[in-house]
Design a protein around this nucleic acid. Structure first.
Lengths: 148, 148
DNA sequence: CTGGATGCAAACTCTTTGCATGCAT
DNA sequence: ATGCATGCAAAGAGTTTGCATCCAG
Protein backbone atom coordinates (compact mmCIF):
# COMPACT_ATOMS: atom_id res chain seq x y z
CA UNK A 1 0.00 0.00 0.00
CA UNK A 2 2.70 2.51 -0.90
CA UNK A 3 1.46 5.79 -2.31
CA UNK A 4 0.96 5.61 -6.08
CA UNK A 5 2.84 8.86 -6.53
CA UNK A 6 6.47 9.67 -5.99
CA UNK A 7 6.03 11.87 -2.95
CA UNK A 8 9.46 13.53 -2.85
CA UNK A 9 9.25 14.62 -6.47
CA UNK A 10 5.69 15.85 -6.01
CA UNK A 11 6.93 17.88 -3.04
CA UNK A 12 9.83 19.26 -5.01
CA UNK A 13 7.65 20.36 -7.91
CA UNK A 14 5.25 22.09 -5.57
CA UNK A 15 8.02 23.81 -3.64
CA UNK A 16 9.68 25.08 -6.79
CA UNK A 17 6.38 26.31 -8.16
CA UNK A 18 5.47 28.10 -4.95
CA UNK A 19 8.87 29.76 -4.75
CA UNK A 20 8.76 30.78 -8.37
CA UNK A 21 5.41 32.45 -7.85
CA UNK A 22 6.37 34.08 -4.61
CA UNK A 23 4.22 31.95 -2.31
CA UNK A 24 5.28 30.36 0.93
CA UNK A 25 5.77 26.67 1.48
CA UNK A 26 3.64 25.52 4.38
CA UNK A 27 3.01 22.04 5.79
CA UNK A 28 -0.67 22.35 4.85
CA UNK A 29 0.16 23.06 1.23
CA UNK A 30 2.59 20.19 1.04
CA UNK A 31 0.14 17.76 2.62
CA UNK A 32 -2.77 18.82 0.44
CA UNK A 33 -0.61 18.53 -2.63
CA UNK A 34 0.45 15.02 -1.62
CA UNK A 35 -3.12 13.99 -1.06
CA UNK A 36 -4.22 15.29 -4.43
CA UNK A 37 -1.37 13.50 -6.18
CA UNK A 38 -2.00 10.23 -4.38
CA UNK A 39 -5.66 9.92 -5.38
CA UNK A 40 -7.05 9.82 -8.83
CA UNK A 41 -10.62 10.52 -7.81
CA UNK A 42 -12.37 13.84 -7.49
CA UNK A 43 -12.30 15.17 -3.98
CA UNK A 44 -14.51 17.66 -2.21
CA UNK A 45 -13.01 20.27 0.08
CA UNK A 46 -14.49 18.24 2.95
CA UNK A 47 -12.70 15.11 1.72
CA UNK A 48 -9.43 16.95 1.56
CA UNK A 49 -9.96 18.45 4.98
CA UNK A 50 -10.76 15.08 6.56
CA UNK A 51 -7.73 13.36 5.04
CA UNK A 52 -5.27 16.12 5.70
CA UNK A 53 -6.45 16.85 9.22
CA UNK A 54 -5.71 13.21 10.06
CA UNK A 55 -2.01 13.68 9.42
CA UNK A 56 -1.81 17.36 10.25
CA UNK A 57 -4.17 17.99 13.16
CA UNK A 58 -5.78 21.37 13.41
CA UNK A 59 -5.81 22.00 9.70
CA UNK A 60 -8.90 24.09 9.13
CA UNK A 61 -11.49 23.95 6.39
CA UNK A 62 -11.00 27.61 5.41
CA UNK A 63 -7.31 26.88 4.90
CA UNK A 64 -8.22 23.93 2.71
CA UNK A 65 -10.40 26.21 0.60
CA UNK A 66 -7.67 28.84 0.41
CA UNK A 67 -5.12 26.24 -0.61
CA UNK A 68 -7.35 24.69 -3.23
CA UNK A 69 -8.04 28.15 -4.65
CA UNK A 70 -4.33 28.81 -4.81
CA UNK A 71 -3.68 25.45 -6.44
CA UNK A 72 -6.40 26.16 -8.98
CA UNK A 73 -4.69 29.45 -9.79
CA UNK A 74 -1.37 27.63 -10.15
CA UNK A 75 -2.98 25.08 -12.44
CA UNK A 76 -2.48 22.16 -10.05
CA UNK A 77 -6.17 21.37 -9.74
CA UNK A 78 -9.36 22.04 -11.61
CA UNK A 79 -12.45 23.01 -9.73
CA UNK A 80 -15.42 21.19 -11.18
CA UNK A 81 -18.99 22.10 -10.35
CA UNK A 82 -20.71 18.90 -11.39
CA UNK A 83 -24.40 18.59 -10.78
CA UNK A 84 -25.61 19.65 -7.37
CA UNK A 85 -23.73 19.46 -4.09
CA UNK A 86 -20.21 20.60 -3.29
CA UNK A 87 -17.55 21.50 -5.83
CA UNK A 88 -15.06 18.81 -6.76
CA UNK A 89 -11.33 19.29 -7.06
CA UNK A 90 -9.68 17.34 -9.79
CA UNK A 91 -5.91 16.87 -9.73
CA UNK A 92 -5.55 17.31 -13.41
CA UNK A 93 -3.53 14.93 -15.45
CA UNK A 94 -4.65 14.56 -19.02
CA UNK A 95 -7.63 16.51 -20.25
CA UNK A 96 -10.79 14.57 -19.70
CA UNK A 97 -14.47 15.18 -19.25
CA UNK A 98 -17.13 14.38 -16.71
CA UNK A 99 -20.18 12.25 -16.34
CA UNK A 100 -22.75 13.08 -13.69
CA UNK A 101 -25.63 10.91 -12.52
CA UNK A 102 -28.52 13.18 -11.73
CA UNK A 103 -29.98 10.61 -9.35
CA UNK A 104 -27.08 9.70 -7.06
CA UNK A 105 -24.76 12.54 -7.99
CA UNK A 106 -21.86 10.22 -8.80
CA UNK A 107 -19.17 11.72 -10.99
CA UNK A 108 -17.03 9.66 -13.35
CA UNK A 109 -14.35 10.53 -15.81
CA UNK A 110 -14.79 10.18 -19.53
CA UNK A 111 -11.69 9.77 -21.61
CA UNK A 112 -13.21 10.28 -25.02
CA UNK A 113 -11.17 12.36 -27.39
CA UNK A 114 -13.15 15.24 -28.82
CA UNK A 115 -12.09 18.02 -31.09
CA UNK A 116 -13.19 21.09 -29.20
CA UNK A 117 -11.10 23.54 -31.18
CA UNK A 118 -14.15 24.83 -33.10
CA UNK A 119 -15.61 25.90 -29.76
CA UNK A 120 -12.41 27.67 -28.75
CA UNK A 121 -12.20 29.32 -32.14
CA UNK A 122 -15.81 30.51 -32.02
CA UNK A 123 -15.18 31.91 -28.59
CA UNK A 124 -12.04 33.82 -29.57
CA UNK A 125 -14.10 35.44 -32.33
CA UNK A 126 -16.17 37.00 -29.58
CA UNK A 127 -13.09 38.62 -28.07
CA UNK A 128 -12.96 36.02 -25.37
CA UNK A 129 -9.76 34.36 -24.20
CA UNK A 130 -10.52 30.68 -23.76
CA UNK A 131 -8.60 29.07 -20.93
CA UNK A 132 -10.44 25.85 -20.41
CA UNK A 133 -13.24 23.83 -21.89
CA UNK A 134 -15.40 21.64 -19.69
CA UNK A 135 -17.70 19.03 -21.03
CA UNK A 136 -20.24 17.50 -18.70
CA UNK A 137 -22.63 14.73 -19.62
CA UNK A 138 -25.69 14.52 -17.40
CA UNK A 139 -27.80 11.41 -17.21
CA UNK A 140 -28.50 8.34 -15.15
CA UNK A 141 -25.86 5.79 -14.18
CA UNK A 142 -26.24 2.02 -14.44
CA UNK A 143 -26.87 1.61 -10.74
CA UNK A 144 -29.68 4.17 -10.62
CA UNK A 145 -31.17 2.94 -13.87
CA UNK A 146 -33.62 0.51 -12.31
CA UNK A 147 -34.37 2.68 -9.32
CA UNK A 148 -36.71 4.83 -11.40
CA UNK B 1 -41.99 47.17 -26.97
CA UNK B 2 -44.38 44.30 -27.39
CA UNK B 3 -43.19 41.00 -25.96
CA UNK B 4 -41.08 39.06 -28.45
CA UNK B 5 -43.07 35.94 -27.77
CA UNK B 6 -46.63 35.09 -28.64
CA UNK B 7 -47.99 35.03 -25.11
CA UNK B 8 -51.32 33.25 -25.72
CA UNK B 9 -49.64 30.37 -27.52
CA UNK B 10 -46.92 30.12 -24.86
CA UNK B 11 -49.68 29.95 -22.26
CA UNK B 12 -51.54 27.32 -24.21
CA UNK B 13 -48.50 25.12 -24.62
CA UNK B 14 -47.72 25.34 -20.92
CA UNK B 15 -51.31 24.61 -19.91
CA UNK B 16 -51.52 21.58 -22.18
CA UNK B 17 -48.20 20.28 -20.93
CA UNK B 18 -49.13 20.71 -17.28
CA UNK B 19 -52.46 18.99 -17.79
CA UNK B 20 -50.89 16.15 -19.72
CA UNK B 21 -48.44 15.54 -16.88
CA UNK B 22 -51.04 15.85 -14.16
CA UNK B 23 -49.87 19.18 -12.76
CA UNK B 24 -52.02 22.16 -11.87
CA UNK B 25 -52.13 25.40 -13.75
CA UNK B 26 -51.40 28.25 -11.38
CA UNK B 27 -50.94 31.99 -12.01
CA UNK B 28 -47.35 31.73 -10.79
CA UNK B 29 -46.52 29.02 -13.28
CA UNK B 30 -48.11 30.93 -16.14
CA UNK B 31 -46.32 34.14 -15.25
CA UNK B 32 -42.95 32.49 -14.82
CA UNK B 33 -43.38 30.72 -18.14
CA UNK B 34 -44.21 34.01 -19.85
CA UNK B 35 -41.18 35.66 -18.35
CA UNK B 36 -38.88 32.88 -19.48
CA UNK B 37 -40.30 32.99 -23.01
CA UNK B 38 -40.06 36.76 -23.25
CA UNK B 39 -36.35 36.98 -22.44
CA UNK B 40 -33.53 35.34 -24.24
CA UNK B 41 -30.99 35.83 -21.49
CA UNK B 42 -30.13 33.52 -18.64
CA UNK B 43 -32.01 34.35 -15.49
CA UNK B 44 -31.27 33.62 -11.87
CA UNK B 45 -34.04 32.54 -9.53
CA UNK B 46 -33.75 36.00 -7.98
CA UNK B 47 -34.25 37.64 -11.37
CA UNK B 48 -37.33 35.56 -11.99
CA UNK B 49 -38.65 36.32 -8.55
CA UNK B 50 -38.15 40.07 -8.93
CA UNK B 51 -39.83 40.21 -12.33
CA UNK B 52 -42.72 37.95 -11.50
CA UNK B 53 -43.41 39.47 -8.09
CA UNK B 54 -43.85 42.82 -9.84
CA UNK B 55 -46.89 41.57 -11.74
CA UNK B 56 -48.02 38.98 -9.24
CA UNK B 57 -47.38 40.40 -5.77
CA UNK B 58 -46.61 38.01 -2.99
CA UNK B 59 -44.99 35.41 -5.22
CA UNK B 60 -42.36 33.82 -3.02
CA UNK B 61 -38.83 32.79 -3.81
CA UNK B 62 -39.40 29.18 -2.71
CA UNK B 63 -42.27 28.97 -5.18
CA UNK B 64 -40.01 30.32 -7.91
CA UNK B 65 -37.50 27.58 -7.13
CA UNK B 66 -40.20 24.93 -7.06
CA UNK B 67 -41.57 26.15 -10.38
CA UNK B 68 -38.17 26.29 -12.02
CA UNK B 69 -37.48 22.76 -10.80
CA UNK B 70 -40.75 21.59 -12.26
CA UNK B 71 -40.03 23.37 -15.54
CA UNK B 72 -36.61 21.76 -15.67
CA UNK B 73 -38.26 18.38 -15.20
CA UNK B 74 -40.70 19.19 -17.98
CA UNK B 75 -37.85 20.24 -20.24
CA UNK B 76 -38.91 23.88 -20.41
CA UNK B 77 -35.71 25.22 -18.92
CA UNK B 78 -32.17 24.09 -18.38
CA UNK B 79 -30.49 24.76 -15.13
CA UNK B 80 -26.95 25.87 -15.75
CA UNK B 81 -24.32 26.10 -13.04
CA UNK B 82 -21.87 28.38 -14.75
CA UNK B 83 -18.85 29.53 -12.84
CA UNK B 84 -19.51 30.73 -9.32
CA UNK B 85 -22.64 32.40 -7.99
CA UNK B 86 -26.26 31.40 -8.38
CA UNK B 87 -27.57 28.90 -10.89
CA UNK B 88 -28.91 30.24 -14.16
CA UNK B 89 -32.10 29.14 -15.84
CA UNK B 90 -31.99 29.01 -19.56
CA UNK B 91 -35.23 28.89 -21.52
CA UNK B 92 -33.95 26.42 -24.00
CA UNK B 93 -34.42 26.94 -27.68
CA UNK B 94 -31.80 25.32 -29.85
CA UNK B 95 -28.94 23.48 -28.24
CA UNK B 96 -26.13 25.82 -27.50
CA UNK B 97 -23.19 26.10 -25.16
CA UNK B 98 -21.89 28.57 -22.63
CA UNK B 99 -19.07 30.96 -22.19
CA UNK B 100 -18.14 32.14 -18.71
CA UNK B 101 -15.82 34.99 -17.81
CA UNK B 102 -13.96 34.01 -14.68
CA UNK B 103 -13.37 37.64 -13.80
CA UNK B 104 -16.82 39.24 -14.02
CA UNK B 105 -18.87 36.05 -14.13
CA UNK B 106 -20.71 37.07 -17.29
CA UNK B 107 -22.31 34.22 -19.21
CA UNK B 108 -22.81 34.29 -22.97
CA UNK B 109 -24.18 31.80 -25.42
CA UNK B 110 -22.04 30.07 -28.01
CA UNK B 111 -23.76 28.79 -31.10
CA UNK B 112 -20.96 26.68 -32.48
CA UNK B 113 -22.00 23.36 -33.92
CA UNK B 114 -20.06 20.49 -32.40
CA UNK B 115 -20.39 16.79 -32.92
CA UNK B 116 -20.74 15.50 -29.40
CA UNK B 117 -22.04 12.08 -30.36
CA UNK B 118 -18.68 10.42 -29.59
CA UNK B 119 -19.07 11.62 -26.01
CA UNK B 120 -22.59 10.28 -25.77
CA UNK B 121 -21.50 6.99 -27.29
CA UNK B 122 -18.55 6.62 -24.92
CA UNK B 123 -20.86 7.32 -22.03
CA UNK B 124 -23.45 4.74 -23.05
CA UNK B 125 -20.65 2.19 -23.13
CA UNK B 126 -20.28 2.76 -19.41
CA UNK B 127 -23.93 1.82 -18.85
CA UNK B 128 -24.86 5.44 -18.48
CA UNK B 129 -27.95 6.94 -20.06
CA UNK B 130 -26.94 10.32 -21.45
CA UNK B 131 -29.66 12.93 -21.24
CA UNK B 132 -27.82 16.12 -21.85
CA UNK B 133 -24.38 17.38 -22.74
CA UNK B 134 -23.15 20.71 -21.46
CA UNK B 135 -20.13 22.43 -22.80
CA UNK B 136 -18.72 25.37 -20.88
CA UNK B 137 -15.80 27.48 -21.98
CA UNK B 138 -14.09 29.35 -19.17
CA UNK B 139 -11.87 32.30 -19.80
CA UNK B 140 -11.73 36.06 -19.77
CA UNK B 141 -14.10 38.29 -21.73
CA UNK B 142 -13.08 41.28 -23.84
CA UNK B 143 -14.16 43.76 -21.20
CA UNK B 144 -12.13 42.16 -18.43
CA UNK B 145 -9.16 41.59 -20.69
CA UNK B 146 -7.36 44.82 -19.85
CA UNK B 147 -8.40 44.81 -16.22
CA UNK B 148 -5.78 42.30 -15.38
C1' DC C 1 11.73 40.80 11.91
C1' DT C 2 7.83 41.15 8.66
C1' DG C 3 3.99 40.01 6.26
C1' DG C 4 1.79 36.14 4.20
C1' DA C 5 -0.67 31.96 5.99
C1' DT C 6 -3.31 29.93 9.43
C1' DG C 7 -7.26 28.76 12.86
C1' DC C 8 -11.40 29.83 14.70
C1' DA C 9 -15.83 31.66 14.64
C1' DA C 10 -19.05 34.04 12.49
C1' DA C 11 -21.25 35.80 8.37
C1' DC C 12 -22.99 35.13 3.91
C1' DT C 13 -25.25 33.34 -0.27
C1' DC C 14 -28.03 30.27 -2.36
C1' DT C 15 -31.37 26.76 -1.90
C1' DT C 16 -34.46 23.59 0.46
C1' DT C 17 -37.82 22.20 4.06
C1' DG C 18 -41.94 22.35 7.36
C1' DC C 19 -46.24 23.62 8.12
C1' DA C 20 -50.61 26.01 7.88
C1' DT C 21 -53.52 28.12 4.34
C1' DG C 22 -55.54 28.54 -0.16
C1' DC C 23 -57.12 27.54 -4.71
C1' DA C 24 -57.23 24.51 -9.06
C1' DT C 25 -59.52 20.57 -10.32
C1' DA D 1 -64.38 18.22 -1.54
C1' DT D 2 -59.60 16.86 -2.21
C1' DG D 3 -55.00 17.50 -2.08
C1' DC D 4 -51.48 19.90 -4.82
C1' DA D 5 -49.42 24.44 -4.72
C1' DT D 6 -48.43 28.33 -2.21
C1' DG D 7 -46.35 31.81 1.35
C1' DC D 8 -43.75 32.51 5.14
C1' DA D 9 -40.17 31.58 8.18
C1' DA D 10 -36.65 28.98 9.39
C1' DA D 11 -33.11 25.68 8.60
C1' DG D 12 -29.50 23.85 5.83
C1' DA D 13 -25.29 23.24 2.86
C1' DG D 14 -21.27 25.14 1.05
C1' DT D 15 -18.14 28.75 0.98
C1' DT D 16 -16.10 33.14 2.33
C1' DT D 17 -14.54 36.78 5.57
C1' DG D 18 -12.45 39.15 9.79
C1' DC D 19 -9.23 39.20 12.98
C1' DA D 20 -5.69 37.72 16.15
C1' DT D 21 -1.80 34.61 16.12
C1' DC D 22 1.96 32.19 14.05
C1' DC D 23 5.70 30.83 11.35
C1' DA D 24 8.28 30.81 6.64
C1' DG D 25 11.53 33.76 4.43
Amino acid sequence: MSPPTDTPSADRELIDLLHRRGHRVTPQRVMINRLLRSRDTHLTAEDVHASVAAGLPGTSLPTVYATLDLFAELGLVRRVRAGFGPALYDSRGTDHHHLVCRVCGAVRDVDVDLDLSPAKAAVETLGFTAERVDLTVDGVCAGCRGTG
